[in-house]
């Protein structure tokens, strides 16, 4: 979008970002796996909103369909299949040493990535401001992705199909009840 970013846009960008971060925090601290999965769904929905605001409408739709729809449903299926018992019995935080280590690693990562954010994008490669929105307006939301996907990244796309096939075979083999006679 040309010119300065409208306040409306900025406000909602920060709103969805904060919802994502807050629900991720709640997700990590829940004891019950079902509650955790539900909070993760909230995070994924607000990330979908962020994708749409970043002119990636197709990715936003796929995020809702694949992540919030398919992957999280598989997680919920497994949680309910395993019947893990009461949340109080499966309280599962690690000890203080692990928590301190996690805090240290987290602080290190945050410092590292903030140092990265302070850097600038190399100008010769960057597109003009509002280019993505113009492209979506001209070609629709899907064809700016479909073009590179089926030309430049065709090999990666084909290899992805092999990854999926391997995953299906692997999941079936692992999930099969093994007979002891062998």
């Amino acid at each position: 979008m040309p010119g300065p970013t409208p306040l409306f846009y900025t406000f909602h960008f920060y709103l969805f970002g904060l919802i994502a971060v807050a629900s991720a925090l709640v997700f990590v601290t829940r004891k019950s796996p079902v509650a955790a999965a539900m909070w993760l769904v909230v995070t994924m929905f607000s990330l979908a909103a962020l994708y749409v605001m970043l002119d990636a409408q197709f990715i936003g739709a796929i995020q809702v369909l694949v992540y919030a729809g398919a992957i999280m449903v598989v997680f919920l299926f497994v949680i309910m299949l395993l019947n893990l018992g009461e949340p109080s019995q499966i309280a599962d935080a690690r000890g203080l040493g692990w928590k301190l280590a996690a805090g240290a690693v987290g602080l290190g990562l945050l410092a590292e990535i903030f140092a990265l954010v302070r850097g600038t994008v190399a100008q010769p490669f960057s597109l003009p401001e509002g280019y993505a929105a113009q492209q979506v307006a001209a070609q629709g939301a899907i064809s700016p992705i479909a073009g590179p996907l089926f030309h430049q990244y065709l090999l990666a796309f084909e290899i992805t199909s092999m990854v999926l096939l391997t995953a299906i075979v692997g999941a079936v083999v692992l999930g099969k009840r093994r007979t002891d006679a062998r």
């Binding site: 971060v21 925090l25 997700f27 599962d92 935080a93 996690a102 690693v105 987290g106 990562l109 903030f114």
Partner: peptide, 18 residues
């Protein structure tokens, strides 16, 4: 936001046992 979310994920991996 991406940095914060990634960090939360790392902390979750390191502190949870489920």
């Amino acid at each position: 936001f991406s940095a914060v979310l990634f960090t939360i994920g790392v902390i979750g991996v390191l502190t949870r046992r489920n």
